[in-house]
Amino acid sequence: MSVDVLTPHLTGRLLPRANPLSKLFAAVLVTVVVMLSIDWVSAAVVLVSELLLLPLLGISAWQLLKRTWPLVLAAVVAAYGTALLAEKTGAVLLEFGPILFTQDSVNSGIAIGLRGLAIALPGIFLLTTTDPTDLADALAQKLRMPHRFVLGALAGLRLVGLLVDEWRTLGLARHARGVGFEGNPVARLRNFLGQGFGLIVQAIRRATRLAMAMEARGFGAGDRTWARESTFTRLDLWVCLAGVLIAGTAVAAAVWAGTWNFLIGAS
């Protein structure tokens, strides 16, 4: 049972059909805008827009939460930490011994939490609706990235899935030789390093054989054609437009509300 990194279970029906590049464009644009300013208005606008688009993923909010709960947890922890440690200006909301929350510190906390989620979601949209093979096609054909690099990376990604398996097998094989994952921390660490070295050896051997197999099939010699054409359709226009719209609305709303604080050069 190998871990199949290259053929993820794609969700939704519409977005997987869009060109990966337009999705990448929209996701990067939205992410950059959220990162530019720490304020709760722009982050909230982006987050709400993303949640409204959630039906496109074809999974329920509950399923999404089950998959991404570490991110949500991280956002909550970050929000709490910020509220606790940010500048204590504005009205005092809660004081309990050393713990002091003020209006401004809580505002900063909420902004940080929302921002974390708003930054994470575009990546999740991209990952759950994009096949790595399609992304490689688009990068090489539309962005004219070198095909040796793109296809090499794609083949390497496939090996990663095989290596997850290999790691487990190595662990069992070494246990059978008398070097199990047991004993004091030093022994465990030494065993871990030994197993890591074994994995590197296997990875290199596999990569060498794969490179030979690719070379034997004419890879790397001059020009090549592409069996599947990476195309842009009207859908891609909508995807890009959605990205621009969300980013633009977020900036406009934050500037209008007076909360926009441009991170670079600020403070």
């Binding site: 093979t133 496939r158 099939r217 592409w226 069996a227």
Partner: peptide
Amino acid sequence: DSQIVLARVGDEVAFGAENQAVPRDQI
């Protein structure tokens, strides 16, 4: 396992022909 390059059956078979720069419809 060490000679399969791509994730999908069709792409895998097409890989060599692509490298030979065979036109798409013929691939």
